[in-house]
Write a protein that binds this DNA or RNA. Structure first.
Lengths: 322, 322
DNA sequence: TTGTACGCGTTATCAG
DNA sequence: CTGATAACGCGTACAA
């Protein structure tokens, strides 16, 4: 059932049908009624490919994340998806696995698929990569961080502030030897969180000590703890690693060491001891970026947004945790 | 840069350009070289919308899952995505949240977006819903279960067999009072696992006892344990629930009760005690369904496939676990 | 082997 | 306000 057919059945031209479908003003009520009736009867659905060819809009948004499996990213995807679908857009999802080459490959695929917009959560932002991003022609939102050199709209979380809060929290609990387990050095978010840690330690006039994991697996969090000789508390750059670290502490009877993460994974409240963490509103972040990419497509200006956070206190920061 | 331009620059007709692009045989080497040179120079990219309109293929596959956040589904997505992208397809991802109405809504969206194929992981398969699925015109793969009434290709995991294995494993450890924590009754996978449990118990001439959670959250797994008075072992229908249950056992000092789940989530090896579980190859399942949907699109017949599993023994099934 | 001409189903333009 | 008609960019019969 195409527009031609509808037009014939309604006894009008397909131009008029098009006008009705797109709510154009220049059409009489009489014709409108007639066409609408036929439209209803035959349950007409416009052919999106033809529409796309003509309007040069696919109504597709490319979403590139570093790891769709982590629960924070699934929250983000829900946020994005809920907003976009409301407005008739669909999303094409890709996973860069934290690798820049992969990321470029997917951005390239997005381009070739002619998506109308892109939401990109990068990991490392090298000067090189920033140049690459800036030169993208398609409306693009950078999610997860904002960077001076970046000429794109962005939605960031308060990684630095949140990290500071954790250090200060440990200090308020009487800790002095506060160690930071950081992400590998090529992770932008890891750098932000490490930065927050160092700043807070400096403000408190405490000696920072940072150790880096090799990757973001639970195992890495576990393994890295072998390097820790002495500590009052450990601030781990993400819950996932923290859960691994916690396991090590338990196995080695270091229940005197306090520990906290960031991300507030769903499982963090369920493990024993439950994990103190920072909660970011990732769903909200997804919604914001979805909204912003649509505004960008509609010609609005580049803007930046930063989201808030909340400290969730649990058992892992109590003395002698279970 | 469109085909016309390339044709002009190469001094040939656009038909010839098209032939080169699509590797048609009926073209001379001389022309081919000439065209390829121009193609390279100008980095020509065909307009997919025009292609789509013409060939009636969007190269888009709709993937509908009950919960994209769970790690099993992210494995599935990776499997699907790796296969599809190899062959130039992209995937549109949607989350039914386990709700049939939502699922229908998304299947409807897939249709309106004119996807070439669908991969659908349903939860409940009511007769009504089976009818609905059977009447879908687009090539469709049902993932996660196979059902007699279903006239679609399917990729299933060995839920029944795996469940039996766990019960038998508990029995080999000397357990007699083996309780099953099952998913809410409207979950097909839950039913399969419960079925496996009941069969195994019958074979062992043991009394089955099944209790149902209200939803699939960690909390539900925790809360349901309050109903358990006496047990040697608990077989939980999924790791997520099992982790909640485990927390309850620890808090209430019931370290004598053995416990095992299904899914082998990444975190299951990291919690204390680590959780005995069944590992399904979800990535492989994703790959298979991706492969099958492409074959369906190419006109192959409807087929079914069932994947294997593996029991992973861990601390939660050792006597007096940590 | 090569090129011409038309069709895919819309939206946009321009007379009437 | 309405209806022809021309784009949109590609594939493909069909003719040469």
């Amino acid at each position: 059932m195409k527009m031609d057919d509808i037009a014939r059945l309604a006894g009008v031209s397909k131009a008029s049908v098009s006008r009705v479908l797109n709510n154009k003003p220049n059409i009489s009520d009489a014709l409108r009624k007639k066409v609408e009736a036929v439209l209803k009867t035959y349950d007409y659905q416009p052919n999106l490919m033809a529409q796309a060819l003509n309007t040069n809009q696919t109504k597709l948004i490319g979403v590139l994340l570093p790891a769709i499996g982590l629960d924070i990213f699934s929250d983000i995807v829900h946020g994005i998806s809920d907003i976009l679908r409301e407005q008739g857009y669909e999303l094409i999802l890709a996973d860069s696995k934290g690798d820049i080459e992969q990321a470029r490959k997917y951005l390239e695929i997005f381009r070739s698929k002619q998506v109308d917009g892109i939401i990109y959560f990068p990991t490392l932002l090298s000067p090189d990569h920033i140049d690459y991003i800036n030169q993208i022609k398609i409306p693009t939102i950078i999610l997860g961080q904002c960077h001076n050199g970046l000429k794109k709209s962005s939605v960031a979380f308060s990684d630095i502030e949140a990290s500071k809060e954790i250090v200060n929290y440990f200090h308020s609990l009487g800790c002095e030897k506060i160690i930071h387990i950081a992400m590998p050095k090529n992770h932008a978010i890891g750098e932000l969180r490490e930065h927050g840690y160092r700043e807070a330690m400096k403000d408190l006039k405490l000696d920072p000590r940072v150790i880096y994991v090799s990757d973001l697996s639970y195992d890495s969090g576990y393994a890295i703890c072998q390097k820790i000789i002495e500590a009052d508390a450990i601030f781990v750059a993400m819950d996932r690693l923290a859960i691994g670290a916690l396991r090590y502490l338990i196995e080695n009877n270091r229940k005197d060491i306090l520990i906290a993460g960031i991300d507030n994974m769903e499982v963090s409240s369920m493990i024993s001891p439950s994990l103190t963490s920072i909660d970011f509103d990732y769903y909200q972040g997804g919604q914001s970026s979805g909204q912003m990419v649509l505004e960008l497509i509609r010609g609005h200006d580049v803007v930046s947004k930063q989201l808030s956070y909340q400290l969730i206190e649990r058992e892992s920061t109590r003395r002698q945790h279970v």
